[in-house]
Amino acid sequence: MNPDMSGKQALRGELLAARALLTSEDVAEAAAVLASAATALPELADARTVAAYVSVGREPGTRVLLDALRRRGVRVLLPVLMDDNDLDWAEFEGADRLVAAGRGLREPDGARLGPRAVLEADAVLLPGLAVDGRGMRLGRGGGSYDRVLARLAAAGAHPALVVLLYDDEVVARVPEEPHDHLVDAVVTPAGTRRFRTGTARG
């Protein structure tokens, strides 16, 4: 096995175990702080279209943020997982228009816009488990967002790439593979950290 891949798996295990210890109150409190901090980001404050996601379980919460963006008049795109693990997109039209999907996910019940709809986003909120000091993101390993990031790069699109995390998920080093991408900013309850570049690793 690739040592970077095995390192990723070990780090994922540690981070998911730490998330499992969070209470519902911990998650709710962090979600409120993250929503306030994220909506203040210029990358989101100036965005007309934001590609985001619906948090599940003990992920850093996005639902307060989704509602705040929608109230502001931002067009919010949410992912719809396809059979091949790629992502289609649909507009967020309110929490009451989200339906249960596979793997415990919730998705919009509206029209599917196609995988290339993400190219219209001014900012993309990426789910993740960690980010390091360079801006290298660790995902869950499913590969769905690797495809999204590759699609953006292939099209020459450069939306702001932002990850929401808990404070202890900003780590010293994330193991990386050639397809991995850097992000532009990470938002945690303790504050926001920006990185010099959000370009692909060369």
Rank of each mutant, 00 (worst) to 15 (best):
A37P: 12
V33Q: 05
A35I: 11
A18T: 03
G135E: 01
L77E: 07
E91G: 11
V183L: 05
R106P: 01
G128H: 06
P175H: 09
M82L: 14
V170S: 07
L87Y: 12
N85G: 09
L87G: 13
N2D: 15
S144M: 13
H158A: 15
V162Q: 10
E107W: 11
G61R: 00
E120I: 00
G128E: 10
D132M: 07
L81N: 13
G7A: 15
M5N: 12
G202Y: 15
E93C: 09
A200D: 02
V171C: 02
A10N: 13
A130N: 05
V186S: 03
V162G: 08
V187R: 04
E25C: 03
L16V: 13
A18Y: 02
L44R: 03
A90T: 04
V171L: 05
S144I: 14
V50C: 07
A190P: 01
D122F: 00
V33K: 03
A95K: 08
D88F: 15
R196Y: 03
A101R: 03
S55K: 02
L138N: 11
G110R: 13
A52G: 07
A101D: 08
A45Q: 05
L105C: 14
E169H: 01
G133H: 15
L65M: 12
R194A: 02
V56L: 04
Y166R: 04
D167Y: 01
L15I: 15
A117N: 10
D146W: 02
A90I: 06
V174P: 10
G139N: 04
G57Q: 03
M82Y: 05
A35E: 07
D184Y: 04
L41K: 06
G143Q: 01
R194S: 12
V171W: 06
V27A: 02
G94P: 10
G128T: 08
R201S: 03
D109P: 02
E59D: 08
D146S: 10
L34Q: 02
A30Y: 01
R193D: 07
P60C: 04
D180G: 02
A17I: 09
R70D: 14
A172N: 09
F92S: 06
D132C: 05
T39D: 08
A20F: 03
R63C: 03
G73D: 13
G110W: 14
D88S: 14
A51G: 11
D168N: 04
H179Q: 09
H181D: 00
Y53M: 13
A30V: 01
N2G: 10
A95P: 04
G57Y: 01
F195Q: 02
R97S: 13
G104T: 08
R134G: 04
A160M: 06
P189A: 03
D132E: 09
V76A: 09
P108R: 14
P189H: 00
Q9F: 05
E176V: 13
A45P: 15
Y53W: 14
